[in-house]
Design a binder for these strands. Structure first.
Length: 429
RNA sequence: GCCGCUGUAGCUCAGCUGGUAGAGCACACGCCUGUUAAGCGUGCGGUCGUCGGUUCGAACCCGACCGGCGGCGCCA
């Protein structure tokens, strides 16, 4: 039994193989049937000639239907007329299941595709998306492993919000109410006092009624937290990480990128250094970027899209005004109006994929910020404790894996970057 | 939460000023020895999202409800 990709080469010419998979396309004429077979690895054209079978068997093999599961035995030939340049001349076959009518056909709407994701993920396009996603997740873990980080597992059923104001999902919890985690940041901060450099990849849940091209209700959140690290050092690590991930995808998935129509030369631009632009400078530049802004304006979807249509490489926007960020961000001691933080905006109009920065590590300052935010100190007792017992300067970030995947693959919406998107209006399949 | 669009065959859609439902694809059968989303012929296939109203008559006009899609805010 062979994988299709492993036999598509000149060394296989003249050899007999057995391959198994699903019928991708079939075209039959009286005495000849072409079956394009797919497996996880690729597709190959197979030809069944009537002269090689008795009438009953030829009838069976030439009337197979799309997505029927089969194994085919035959000899490989080079043939320029066939997709991928090789063709297998079938001499025997086994049918595992013959379908009546596969619902997914060449003309499908977005709604039908989403209702039938469990079947659509078989398409060559989605097969490529899943392979690239797999590389992105693998590269993320590889990078942090090489950098000496520990992977940790925070709880996902929690008692408090990370960011005040965000809407939480409630879950019954033995007479209490639990919430689904929106971010593991606070728990990661606890881990650094044991392990110093930690990361995690978990789902995060947002009950906001967002209806946009880049929001999911359940999304894959990659987060890291480092002791003894400032904002500048944090950005250096993130830049190195994204260079590693993009480089891995380019080297391992060039074929999949081609199937998706992703321009690899444009993607390679993101292997270059990322500019750091302080918020104030960005505001000063904003008019020339086609999106006039004034100091204090937040960057919304339209602003990011317009600004990032000017860049081919991601940029860090740093030093946001304190009014635009939540309570745990550390103000610049030399200018408390400004926060020691950064957002990473992806190029080609994609916008924010990472948010990070230094955390407040002074006990009294954090208490003050919690109270200013209208939050209850007792809800955050364990988070405050970290500032009482051996507090250290530290930084971290959160990255939306699905957003990174969408940008790397140049997809037009985030629901295309994940197999089973959860949004305000989609819970199935 | 706000704004806009949409729902007709398994799928993609057409259906004029209201007059009793159409095409392509898929599937089934037949023909074809080099197809590339193959071709030709025949066939199968519809409480026109649901409920109510107007009318002699509603896929079409009106109302309510339900589903879906797109955009913004919020964020990753």
């Amino acid at each position: 039994m062979e994988q299709i990709s492993s036999i598509l080469n000149d060394l296989s010419i003249g050899k007999k193989f057995e391959i198994r998979g699903w019928v991708y396309r079939i075209r039959a004429s009286g005495k000849l049937a072409f079956i394009i077979l797919r497996d996880a690895s690729n597709v190959i054209q197979c030809v069944a000639k009537a002269e090689n079978f008795n009438d009953g068997d030829f009838k069976l093999v030439s009337s197979l239907t799309i997505e029927s599961s089969v194994s085919l035995v035959g000899e490989l030939r080079k043939d320029d007329r066939a997709i991928n340049g090789y063709e297998m001349n079938i001499t025997s076959f086994k049918i595992y299941e013959r379908n009546d009518n596969f619902p997914v056909s060449k003309d499908i709407s977005e709604e039908f595709e989403l209702d039938n994701r469990h079947l659509w993920i078989r398409s060559r396009e989605f097969n490529s998306i899943l392979k690239i996603r797999s590389t992105i997740f693998k590269a993320f873990r590889e990078f942090y492993d090489k950098e000496g980080f520990y992977e940790v597992q925070p709880p996902l059923m929690v008692s408090t919000a990370t960011e005040g104001g965000s809407t939480l999902f409630n879950v019954p919890f033995f007479g209490e109410t639990a919430y689904l985690s929106q971010s593991s940041q606070f728990y990661l901060e606890t881990f650094i006092f044991s392990l110093e450099k930690v990361y995690t990849i978990t789902p995060s849940f947002r009950a906001e009624k967002s209806r946009t091209w880049r929001h999911l209700t359940e999304y894959w959140h990659a987060e890291a937290e480092l002791a003894w690290t400032d904002n500048e050092q944090m950005m250096e690590i993130e830049e190195k990480m994204l260079h590693y991930i993009v480089g891995k995808v380019i080297s391992e998935n060039s074929n999949e990128l081609r199937i998706l129509g992703r321009d690899i030369e444009t993607l390679k631009e993101s292997l270059k250094p990322f500019r750091r632009i302080p918020y104030k400078e960005l505001i000063d530049m904003s008019e020339s970027l086609g999106m006039p802004l004034k100091y204090g304006d937040d960057l919304g979807a339209d602003e990011e899209r317009q600004i990032m249509s000017n860049f081919k490489t991601p940029i860090f926007v740093t030093e946001f005004p304190a009014t635009l960020k939540t309570f745990y961000h550390r103000p610049d001691p030399s200018n408390p109006e400004v926060i020691l933080c950064h957002d990473l905006l992806a190029p080609e109009g994609y916008g924010e994929v990472v948010g990070g920065g230094e955390r407040i590590w002074d006990y009294e300052l954090l208490r003050k910020r919690i109270n200013e935010g209208g939050l209850k100190e007792e809800d955050y007792y364990w988070y405050l404790d970290l500032r009482k017992y051996g507090s250290v300067p530290h930084s971290g970030f959160g990255l939306g894996m699905d957003r990174v995947a969408m940008w790397i693959m140049h997809l037009d919406k985030i629901t295309g970057a994940i197999a089973y998107p959860r949004t305000i209006r989609r819970l199935r399949p």
